[in-house]
Design a protein around this nucleic acid. Sequence first.
DNA 1: GCGACAG
DNA 2: ATCTTGTCGC
Length: 221
Amino acid sequence: MPIPELLDWPTEVTEARAIQDRWRDRVEVCDRLHLVNSVAGVDLGFENEGRTTRAAAALFSYPDLELMETAIAIYPTIFPYIPGYLSFREVPPILKALRQLTVFPDLILCDGQGLAHPRRFGLACHLGVLLDCPTIGVAKSRFIGTHGEPGRKRGSWELLTDGEETIGAVLRTRAKVKPLYVSIGHRVSLETAISYVLACAPNYRLPETTRIADRLASNRT
DNA sequence: GCGACAG
DNA sequence: ATCTTGTCGC
């Protein structure tokens, strides 16, 4: 699985928005995955007062969830954090980390939204379309949309809606703990996404993939 | 105009 | 995201 080189990465919000509008139609919302033997989590951390980005990738076997490989990539921070344009800040460093993996994951869990985005093209969608690989958006907080409060037990969820449109799900991965915002990234249906997130988060609120990636990215241990 | 706003 | 110690609860 070759990871594309990035040419002409946008610097301005206007170009970024144009790319989102031009690529949003390429998002696939139905299941198109192979047998999932590996799952990866990717996340970022920052150093030097934000001037340096530290990307991490953690590859796990599935469904065993054994940590197989990790990768860390240092990258200059190239785009500011602007709500709605997170992927333009995170994708380049993430690709650099993924290139270091020996095995390309069958599924990637992203730390952020997928379709639950103003223009339906959040980080998980962007990464998925760019790599043409299955991705799921797993965010720790709401960006857009409305929803009811999911039941307090693990596994209960509510639809995340924007007007008449379903854009994701609010999923409780641990009883009585703040739920996660799950949305389609690419090539994984919402129902399938929910089951994978649950399967990847057997003991904690966050999936094992993002927990480890997060830890690596923030330089902890 | 005012408030909200993934990481 | 990051700055940061102790502290409340199971």
